[in-house]
């Protein structure tokens, strides 16, 4: 299996030539990746209540638990599941493969949390249930300097819930922060609505 480290996001994907990888953006596999056969343990993080999340997490757990010690942590939302995720990351040992599934917003922030705990791209796998089209994303506003949950897509616009500016969501993702960079379009949100 060839594993390619994706620039900027560090999400590992398989079977993709490096030249095809869009720089600065997460690349989501079309189908869930298999459990790494070299793993000593597996931690599955299932985020959100989407039915596909439960399906993918269940498949990963079934695949892994026959081979290695496997733990499943379910977090319906990031706020209530925060402590469980952190406790699981504190408990894992090198040799673990962390497999994250859920909507982009939760998965990107959780991957950043995993990295903050010391996980590297080779130890992370991710699958998102909302890969196509505009969706909720973690967006870092360059003006109010905070990360917000905004609906949109890279290259599109969204109104900042912190400073009310109309932001352009840049195709520039930070693996460390988990968020996309966004900055003022220079137009008022109302102007755009009127247009």
């Amino acid at each position: 299996m060839t594993t390619v480290e994706i620039a900027a996001t560090g999400i590992a994907a398989t079977g993709i030539a490096a030249t095809e990888v869009p720089l600065g953006l997460p690349h989501w596999p079309a189908v869930p990746e298999p459990v790494d056969p070299t793993a000593a343990t597996v931690l599955v993080l299932a985020l959100g209540g989407h039915p596909r999340t439960a399906e993918v997490a269940g498949a990963w757990v079934r695949e892994a638990e026959g081979r290695v010690p496997t733990r499943l942590v379910v977090a319906d939302d990031l706020a209530t599941g925060h402590d469980d995720v952190v406790a699981a990351l504190d408990a894992v040992r090198i040799g673990v493969r962390i497999m994250v599934v859920g909507p982009q917003h939760d998965v990107l922030l959780t991957l950043a949390r995993c990295r903050a705990h010391g996980a590297s791209g080779a130890e992370l796998r991710a699958f998102v249930v909302d890969a196509e089209g505009p969706t909720d994303l973690p967006v870092y506003c360059a003006h109010c300097r905070a990360t917000h949950r905004l609906h949109g897509e890279p290259g599109g616009t969204a109104v900042c819930t912190g400073c009310a500016r109309l932001l352009e969501i840049h195709p520039h993702h930070s693996a460390a922060r988990g968020s996309f960079l966004a900055s003022d379009t220079g137009t008022e949100p109302d102007d755009q609505v009127a247009a």
Partner: peptide
Amino acid sequence: PLGTHAYACGPVPLLETYVDAARAAGWP
């Protein structure tokens, strides 16, 4: 713990044991 790097220096048999044990323990 997550985020650990391992470093070894020694004679060849020790290094072989180290690499094999790391692989067996799932270390990338």
